[in-house]
Design a protein around this nucleic acid. Structure first.
Lengths: 249, 249
DNA sequence: ATGGATGTTGCACATGTTGCAACGAGCTGA
DNA sequence: TCAGCTCGTTGCAACATGTGCAACATCCAT
């Protein structure tokens, strides 16, 4: 909509790939050097890009601070957090909380496993949308037409032999998830990692977030993890009640 | 420099305070509604802001993804991480890694305490710059004039009775830190939390990052923590060597 | 010294941004 | 049901702002 702002913002993902100098930025934006310079300066003034010693630009620290504050405004987080911690203390595994936002699913909270072998994930990281248990839960709640459109647009990377490939398989899996009210991911993202997840619902019954418990094969088998399902679902329901009571609107 | 981009970027910290509707944004930017609308739409297209159900805007998920990627480009992180983990396994306390960037100090890595009582901090969070051990270490390395300018500009919040207040006290503390090559924070930020930290240096001897070990009083006394100082300094030196060898430029 | 590569500045032009005014949608109370 | 309010959206004309150019500055290698 706004050309100038659009150009400036296109610089950010570009720099996210790695530091770049003025000319590289100008070339990739397809604008004159002087234009790129002005945009970079404006971003710099706002702390969104940082100029390192060798004159190359990279993303700046303000970005972290903003992401940080944004995270803290997500009110489901505050409600859920103590319950996630309690669940973690109870079962010892990694607990995740995720929300959906316009075609992306992102982790917004995480309580680490107490076992030395931990899975890699990080708050703020976009979730593998076609395979993760939390993603299935969140997307299963979308209206049918919107979901079909999304399913067609998605990529279906074959992370492992058990990854879900293609819109039909994905829609079928989501139908199952919607039906049963919970989801699993047994090695669909990383061979040796299993998850079980459950939805957190707002006062109107819509899914507002999803939580999951994850553990590597070397710690517990898929069956043992599945045995935790009732506990996970109970926790999700407790959070839902808490949230519905708490939410002001 | 660029008015349009400047206005657009001013929206971000504004939304970081909490969700806002079009009119609030327009008022706070001091522009017409239609202008604010166009800027918001552009930010929206890039995923930096998100429009929630009630039509209010808040910061969007792409921000997390960007911050995430930016973090992973900070190469000192990759070098330091295994050493931080090793130190954590050795002493059990929370370990932090921080860097300095234009007047701000931010945590870029963290390994959590194995004790149940953990301090609150989060990767990406700006550090309490006037009291934290890592901040003292990083700022102590700045050139004298730049440092004095900065010291005069800073706020000195009285977090606790032991917080450092005022530029003179701060500069004196930094001189001591520079002299001795390590820093502490005994309850200057939170009454019951102590830290000891050491600098990580690049090939030219300049401080490129700082690391620290933190623990609450209820777990170990300040004296016991101080006993870990040699270990912390040794780890920092190991990372420095690793980094100087590794760095390509 | 000389040449090349890259960052920076001032400026004239026209393109994109701006505020306005009018419209639309949703809500409230009479 | 309608008038009256608030708040988001749209089209447009005026002109402020962003744009690319060309010249200059700086740095490095030869």
């Amino acid at each position: 909509m706004s050309q100038t702002v659009d150009r400036a913002l296109r610089i950010l993902p570009l720099l996210a790939e790695g530091p770049a100098n003025l000319e590289q930025v100008a070339t990739r934006l397809d604008v004159h050097k002087s234009t790129a310079l002005r945009l970079l300066r404006t971003l710099h003034e706002h702390g969104l890009v940082y100029r390192q010693g060798d004159q190359r630009y990279r993303l700046g620290g303000r970005l972290f601070a903003l992401a940080q504050e944004a995270m803290e405004n997500i009110d489901i987080r505050a409600t859920a957090h103590p319950h996630l911690v309690a669940l973690n203390e109870n079962c010892g595994h990694t607990v995740h909380l995720a929300v959906h936002e316009e075609g992306e699913v992102i982790y917004v909270d995480k309580v680490d496993s107490r076992y030395p072998v931990r899975m890699y994930s990080r708050i703020g990281k976009p979730v593998a949308i076609t395979v993760a248990a939390v993603a299935k839960i969140l997307l299963a709640d979308l209206p049918g037409d919107e979901l079909r459109t999304l399913a067609r647009k998605l990529d279906y990377p074959r992370y492992t032999a058990r990854s879900i490939i293609g819109p039909e398989a994905f829609l079928a899996e989501l139908a199952k998830v919607r039906e049963q009210g919970w989801a699993t991911d047994f090695g669909g993202h990383e061979e040796s990692i299993n998850c079980v997840g459950a939805p957190i619902r707002g006062h109107d019954g819509r899914v507002v977030a999803a939580m999951s418990v994850s553990a590597p094969n070397v710690v517990v088998t898929a069956e043992e993890l599945l045995a935790l399902l009732p506990l996970v679902r109970r926790t999700a329901q407790t959070i839902s009640r808490d949230y519905a009571g708490y939410t002001s609107r």
